[in-house]
Design a protein around this nucleic acid. Sequence first.
DNA 1: TATTGTTATACTCTATAACTATA
DNA 2: TATAGTTATAGAGTATAACAATA
Lengths: 165, 165
Amino acid sequence: MSAEATDREIVDLLITFMESFKGPFVTALEQLDLPISQGHVLMRLEEPIPMSAIAKRMGFDASHVTALIDGLEGRGLIERRPDPHDRRIKRITLTEQGAAIQDQIRNCVYEGLPPLARLSPDERIQLRNLLATAIDRPVGGHGPRPFACGDAASAPADQELAAKS
Amino acid sequence: MSAEATDREIVDLLITFMESFKGPFVTALEQLDLPISQGHVLMRLEEPIPMSAIAKRMGFDASHVTALIDGLEGRGLIERRPDPHDRRIKRITLTEQGAAIQDQIRNCVYEGLPPLARLSPDERIQLRNLLATAIDRPVGGHGPRPFACGDAASAPADQELAAKS
DNA sequence: TATTGTTATACTCTATAACTATA
DNA sequence: TATAGTTATAGAGTATAACAATA
């Protein structure tokens, strides 16, 4: 019964995996008083990236990205920076606070959650490598973390870190 | 640089993987004239299941499930069946047409898509097993397909298979 | 002419609150 | 009293259309 892994089976498992994050994610965002939609974008930001690239990557219309980025900018979590080569483009860059909130959300949502905790270090590496192959990305291809890597958990978590501008 | 697989790295890869399905999924649903929200629920239906279980699994409020199931029922894709032991419960069951549409969407969305196609049969089995471990489900634990398994692709695809009630 | 991003608007998705029926 | 589901409504999320600026 395990001689073959169908597309269906794999995708169903992936969906179930992802569904397990929804509850903790929503809880974390509510505690930060950050709309879910803005949280989704925030967690996908890394390198300075044009808004059109965000739209393409996440499958959103450009006008929606404008609204989401407006919200994140109003909270001081990102900045619109000019592109040196094309004045139409605005590069979305995490502020230091934005990176801290990103880490805080990750700590609340990912860390210690059952699906990831059930895998041994070896299995995690296997899974990482398989996923990287699937999406055609070299292992380790994330680039350097821009800010505040890994120390946000020690920041004050019970204050208004996501104050509305 | 690949000696360790962080939670962050794995989750980022999972999200990227899932994002790659969004475009084809939306396209398929539009062709069937089926709302995206109803499509999401349809693709998670298998065994007859109480509405409360759908709400819990997908992280929705019960009232929203009512609305979604109303829509799918109006299109003839599911049925509300009584539970033999508890008259409060309605078990949501795929109709034959619902199962056919499910397969049709899978064929449009999953089959031959780059992320899955990049993996060898062996790698697919590894990935399946790792995901099954992560979400604590025994391999092959999907149970039998209820209807019309695997032959929907040969059904007429250019007709109004998702006619609105 | 095509692309990036914005504004205004309308539509879709989802939750809250109050309720009925059953357990 | 607690749970499953429904109804009505409000709020959050997202797209469409028309536009300005730049390429």
